[in-house]
């Protein structure tokens, strides 16, 4: 079983690798399109800005393989910016077209008294378990939303499931035991 973690210079692959390693699950960090295509499971991480991430994906020649793999029915996991990039469009940097795999738009949290941006810290998904979030932008609620979280007066998509496509706005690799449980679920689904 191979899990490929896509390294497109937009995120901390080390944390994801460490988290899977602690579960006894081997992963390979790669930006080789054929390694990604042959993997049994794919993790698409990401932090930072949508525009530079999209530019990096294109520069490394990975946009097509990521789109194909996300639509392939193979287990695919988007994390944080790696979730947002699966949607249609982001308001970030004056507007960026994304991979358009999931319907919906990515918007900036409105300036709201009493709320700092970025949202940094542990917040609840569906009013229950806390996970660790770091983000200034959020995906709207859509048909594949399975987790909802509230911040700055907005209820946003914190978890997505469409068949074997999983995506989380929070960082499961940094969410302690609760996050590791989600990664274990992904590694064995």
């Amino acid at each position: 079983m191979t899990i490929a973690i896509i390294d497109y210079k937009a995120g901390n692959c080390t944390s994801v690798l460490n988290a899977f390693a602690s579960l006894g699950v081997e992963t390979v960090v790669t930006r080789e399109a054929d390694v990604i295509a042959k993997a049994e499971r794919i993790v698409f991480p990401g932090v930072g800005a949508a525009k530079s991430a999209m530019e990096n994906l294109t520069a490394f020649g990975l946009a097509d393989v990521v789109r194909e793999q996300a639509l392939s029915g193979k287990p695919f996991l988007g994390i944080c910016l790696g979730m947002q990039i699966l949607f249609e469009h982001s308001e970030e940097d004056g507007g960026v077209n994304l991979l358009n795999i999931l319907p919906g738009k990515v918007k900036r949290f409105p300036d709201t008294p009493g709320f700092k941006i970025p949202e940094i810290g542990w917040n609840q998904v569906n009013g229950d378990i806390d996970y660790y979030f770091v983000h200034s932008y959020y995906a709207e609620i859509g048909p594949y939303t399975t987790g909802r979280t509230e911040y700055a007066g907005v209820t946003f998509t914190s978890a997505v499931r469409k068949g074997n496509l999983f995506a989380y706005q929070f960082h499961p690799e940094k969410s302690g035991k609760a996050g590791l449980a989600l990664l274990k679920e992904f590694a064995t689904c």
Partner: peptide
Amino acid sequence: VAKSIHIP
């Protein structure tokens, strides 16, 4: 340390 913990 980073290998041993899974929090920020």
